[in-house]
Amino acid sequence: MNNPEMNMKFMQIAMKHLPDGKKFLDDKGIELNMEDLQPMLELLLNVMNEAYELGKEQAAEQTN
């Protein structure tokens, strides 16, 4: 799925939780800037898209 609207919603969710993730990494002594975090955000979006599709498939199966 490559739905720009859904990707924007997923990015908003990721950005909401980014400070917690950054704090976790900082507490572990891992310093990353936003440029370093970009590949991880893309990976997270891929995971969120797959989870969304799985939920959609399961919902469709339950209605049949």
Score class of each variant (00 low, 15 high):
Asn46Gly: 03
Leu54Asp: 13
Met40Gly: 05
Lys28Gln: 15
Met6Asn: 01
Met11Glu: 15
Lys56Pro: 03
Ala59Asn: 01
Gln12Gly: 14
Leu37Glu: 04
Glu31Thr: 15
Glu35Arg: 03
Leu32Val: 06
Gly21Pro: 00
Asp36Phe: 00
Asn64Asp: 06
Lys16Gly: 05
Gln12Glu: 13
Met15Cys: 14
Glu31Ser: 14
Met34Gly: 07
Lys22Cys: 06
Pro4Gln: 00
Gly55Lys: 07
Lys22Met: 14
Thr63Ala: 15
Leu44Lys: 03
Thr63Asp: 13
Glu5Lys: 01
Pro4Arg: 03
Ala14Ser: 04
Met6Lys: 03
Glu5Arg: 00
Met1His: 00
Glu61Val: 03
Asn49His: 11
Met48Gln: 12
Gln38Leu: 07
Gly21Ser: 02
Asn7Gln: 01
Glu61Asn: 03
Asp20Asn: 14
Leu25Lys: 01
Ala14Leu: 13
Lys56Gly: 05
Thr63Tyr: 09
Leu37Trp: 10
Ile30Cys: 11
Leu18Ala: 12
Gln38Ile: 06
Glu53Gly: 01
Pro4Asn: 00
Gln38Tyr: 04
Met8Phe: 03
Glu42Phe: 03
Met1Val: 05
Leu32Ile: 13
Ala14Val: 02
Gln62Phe: 09
Asp20Ala: 14
Pro4Ala: 00
Thr63Trp: 07
Lys16Asp: 14
Asn64Tyr: 08
Asn2Ala: 05
Lys56Ala: 07
Glu61Tyr: 04
Asp27Glu: 12
Met8Leu: 05
Leu25Gln: 11
Glu31Cys: 14
Pro39Lys: 02
Phe10Asn: 09
Leu54Asn: 14
Ile13Glu: 15
His17Leu: 07
Leu32Phe: 03
Glu31Ala: 10
Met15Pro: 10
Phe10Cys: 02
Gly55Phe: 06
Leu54Ala: 10
Ala51Ser: 04
Met8His: 08
Phe10Leu: 15
Asn33Ser: 02
Pro4Tyr: 05
Gln12Val: 11
Met34Phe: 13
Asp27Val: 02
Asp20Met: 04
Met34Gln: 11
Met8Cys: 04
Lys9Gln: 11
Met34Thr: 08
Ala14Lys: 06
Glu57Phe: 11
Glu50Tyr: 03
Asn7Pro: 00
Met8Thr: 08
Leu25Ser: 07
Glu57Thr: 00
Asp26Cys: 00
Asn3Gly: 08
Gly29Asn: 08
Pro39Leu: 07
Met15Phe: 09
Glu5Ser: 01
Glu53Leu: 11
Leu45Cys: 00
Met34Glu: 15
Glu42Tyr: 02
Phe24Lys: 13
Met11Ser: 15
Thr63Arg: 15
Met15Gln: 10
Asn33Ala: 09
Asp20Gly: 08
Gln38Asn: 06
Ala60Glu: 06
Ile30Arg: 09
Phe10Gln: 10
Asn3Cys: 05
His17Gly: 02
Glu35Trp: 09
Glu57Met: 12
Gly55His: 00
Gly29Gln: 15
Pro39Gly: 10
Thr63Val: 14
Asn46Thr: 03
Leu41Asp: 08
Glu50Met: 10
Leu18Tyr: 01
Leu25Ala: 08
Glu57Arg: 09
Lys22Gln: 04
Ile30Lys: 12
Asn46Val: 02
Leu18His: 06
Glu35Val: 02
Asn46Ile: 02
Lys9Ser: 11
Ala60Thr: 10
Lys9Gly: 09
Leu37Asn: 07
Glu53Ala: 09
Pro4Trp: 14
Thr63Met: 12
Glu57Val: 07
Pro39Ile: 05
Asn7Met: 07
Met11Thr: 10
Met11Asp: 15
Asn2Gly: 10
Asn49Ile: 04
